[in-house]
Design a protein around this nucleic acid. Structure first.
Lengths: 343, 343
DNA sequence: TAAGAGTATTAAACCGTTTTAATTTGTGGA
DNA sequence: TCCACAAATTAAAACGGTTTAATACTCTTA
């Protein structure tokens, strides 16, 4: 099954490839009968013009950038992508999004693919766990391919737009302490994620900067997906005496928080009357939840905009620009899932 | 600012383009000093090898398909995309997703872009309103570019995977009638959307197949976005006497339903005690809502899988296949936002 | 010092299209 | 019937890389 090219069509139709090209491009210079005949042959041969070759002559007309997120179904990431899109569109770029689904191989594949398909640059939410391979990033650097990371990656100099996860959690804990809470627990995310580590660190730091004393059992691994956190929360409370219940939980992210709240409902523990919950991210659905979630807002839109801005600046520069690093501030959003403790 | 090519690099480095090509491709045949020198020149010139040209010789190595959805932030669409991804990956294809954000121009741009970038085929959620242009779809057909639509489009023969919206709403209404409801209202979506029309039609049909009589004011236009439906719902109830309140609302989709529930909470109207709510789509967040939503489930994952299956079959066929049409069934999911009326 | 074996580099062909300039065909008018 | 002009078609160059086969260097070693 050899590949069909324009030459095959031309030969079979008894015309030159120039003519076939003209009908493909809907030029009006070709006689209707010839046109129909060629169209017919194209169908018979199921001929599909190769995009790559078509663009070679003129250079691709469309300008597009790509983004690699980690989870297509987590609103946090799609909100970032929207921010990217907004800025990119305003500058005349289209954006295509792909999701690694936390698979490192996929990240590598996509980064290759983008450069191969003449996508002008990439915004990458890198999977950083342990010392994951970053050879693909070096490869991008070698070919001067513009990209910006959404998280700092050790060992490579690159553009990055990130938020201060550690400080975010600190804010949450401090707020709870200010509200009079002392039995505060952190429900941590997936162990291998760098975010999990940063947030745990922030939690610890908040304690060390307060009169409270941190105990090991105040940090418990719950996962980030809804189903998982739901299950583990049920388990957590079932294995524990009432008097040992925390009065406040700082969650890894909003999705987890939603799972926790759901579990508490099942357990007939009231939020925020019995337990206060703080989320993290401020995804869209946190706001429209019947118990609007107190959370640490990561400026998702802004992250996307900023990343896109840096990326496009790099794409359009004809000299190599030095890497930029920007850290965006988070903000505590107080809603209805937390309460002040009075005693 | 003329384009930098491999020739410029070669000339400046005083080598042949073959050598430059070798360093770009990390071949080990080139002497380290030469390599470093060339790398240096590449940086100075900010040379970026053109992906298109690179792939021309061998044919692109990566196989990818694309999907054009309408709203990157609506879980309904990302769930479909996940279904696509799952099947596509199992067949060795990557998937890239783009969103038209309900803009017809974007849809056109993306469909061109996909074929131009050697994305092997596309799944398109087409914007069909009034008689929108479908020339871009004809263009795809002309070049035998494989694609499948997620909604039927008048005037073109193509693969389509869709759900029966009309019947979906009918199921919802019938269920409510079975529950004893008679004051049932439909909160319709954006007027220009084809889904809105189909669902209104289903609503009407359910009435005509029942003893109930349809009045004009039983269909009210509320929009589909959360903020909009929230606002319009408040307005709707403020302008209406208590005794004229419906006892059940059939919503356009889940996002709208969430807005409605939020508004009802604000108005201190209880769901489902005072009013039953039925959503539509069964997005992820409908399930984890504290008032789990009764809704009509569209098999999002299945839609994606099926579309991907048809698409890939077409991509891999060396003869032109006849268009396939498949309509997937919806399912009523009864949760806690509706109740049986007893009187 | 020449031969032989690697190692590094190059020149030229090639990928599949579009475009341009040249050529052929067709048409109507003198 | 021939010419001029327009319409349709073609041949060849171009796009920017990769690959292959041939060539030019370097070392060893006899």
């Amino acid at each position: 099954m050899k590949k069909i090219t324009i030459v095959d069509v031309a030969r079979k139709a008894g015309v030159s490839k120039g003519t076939v090209s003209a009908v493909i491009n809907a030029k009006n210079t070709v006689k209707p009968e010839t046109r129909d005949h060629i169209l017919q042959i194209m169908k018979e041969l199921n001929y599909r013009p190769k995009g790559m070759a078509r663009n070679l002559k003129n250079g691709s007309q469309d300008r597009a950038i790509g983004i690699i997120i980690k989870d297509l179904n987590y609103p946090f990431y799609t909100a970032i992508a929207s921010g990217v899109k907004e800025y990119a569109n305003s500058k005349g770029y289209s954006v295509v999004v792909t999701s690694s689904e936390n698979d490192h191989e996929s990240e590598i594949r996509f980064s290759h693919m983008f450069s191969a398909k003449d996508i002008k640059g990439a915004i990458i939410a890198p999977i950083v766990e342990g010392n994951s391979e970053i050879e693909h990033l070096f490869k991008l650097k070698m070919i001067n391919y513009p990209f910006v990371l959404l998280e700092d990656v050790r060992g490579i100099q690159a553009n990055v737009v990130a938020i201060d996860n550690q400080n975010a959690i600190k804010k949450a804990v401090k707020y709870l302490i200010d509200c009079g809470h002392t039995k505060i627990v952190h429900f941590a995310g997936p162990p291998q994620s760098s975010h999990t580590q940063e947030r745990i660190e922030g939690f610890k730091q908040a304690f060390s900067e307060s009169p409270l004393i941190l105990r090991d059992d105040m940090i418990v691994s719950i996962g980030s997906k809804f189903e998982e956190s739901f299950g583990k929360t049920i388990e957590y409370f079932k294995n524990r005496k009432k008097e040992d219940y925390p009065t406040a939980i700082v969650c890894f992210n909003d999705q987890q928080a939603l799972g926790v709240i759901m579990a508490l409902k099942e357990l007939r523990i009231k939020v925020p009357d019995d337990i206060s919950i703080v989320g993290n991210d401020d995804i869209y659905y946190a706001r429209i939840y019947p118990v609007p979630l107190t959370t640490i807002r990561a400026p998702q839109h802004e992250i996307g905009r900023k990343a896109a801005e840096i990326l496009i600046r790099n794409i359009e520069s004809n000299v190599l620009l030095p890497p930029e690093k920007v850290v965006l501030e988070t903000e505590l959003i107080i809603r209805e899932s937390t309460r002040v403790l009075n005693e």
